[in-house]
Amino acid sequence: MDLRRSMLFIPGNNPGMLQNGGVFGADSVILDLEDAVAPMEKDAARFLVAQALRTVDYGASETVVRINPLDTFAAVDIKAIVPCCPDAILVPKVESAADIHQVVAMIAAAEKPDQTPVKIIALLETPCGIVEAYHIAKADPRVVALALGAEDYTAGLGAMRTKEGTEIFTARTIVINAAAAANVQSIDTPYTDANDEEGLLADTQLAKRLGFKGKLSINPRQIDVIHSVFNPSLNDIDWAQQVIHAIRKAEAEGSGVASLNGKMVDLPIVNRAERILHLAELLGLMGGEK
């Protein structure tokens, strides 16, 4: 499982930010060729991002490049960027499985023979994209996550974007459900007010409760808050350890049924506990293991 609690956008035509992108501790850095780059500077940003991928050390952060939409510069972006070995491509405004097939063909043509296959994260930000979410997630094994882009989506709906997010509730749950059904990750839309830490916390907590596995981020200051929400708490880890202990004890006693504090421990509970412990292990939070 790849950790994608936080995915930080970095403008693709800003050398200062590109060279420092690895120091913020985001699980993924998204070098952005799309919205963060003026139309006249697309070519220059492509050169800069290509050079950054070859030379800048992004540490433990996954390197993702957001290309331009399929009907603009996607083909040129993929041809230039894929040979520089990013971990993944974030494809904006995906609306169908056919879009993914098109991207896969372009990536395959651009990859070097010995290169690790480049993954795809599909950014769903139109009503059509939300409707097709499951088929998009299942379109190709390269697709590892669905992400929600709520700003364009609400514009497509003709709705007002609010901090409460009532207008994107349906889209959020559709993306989460489609991703879970396809066994890929779901990543929530960014919280766009970088100065509102309380709002970010509430929005991220809601995203986690609904089932998202991570959140897009537009400012490095947001990363700690996002991680604090998506990291398992000590109580979560303690509960998960008790569940695993109870099920192992039951198995050792030849019983198929276990209970913890009077509640039955069945397979979904065990799966949830295992996910928590796996995440805790990845994050180095298992120091107090019993």
């Binding site: 220059a44 050169f47 290509a50 050079q51 950054a52």
Partner: peptide, 14 residues
């Protein structure tokens, strides 16, 4: 940085 100098030069040449 070196990579930026290289990228900007290539962009100008292009």
């Amino acid at each position: 940085l070196d990579c930026t100098i290289c990228a900007r030069t290539l962009a100008a040449l292009s």
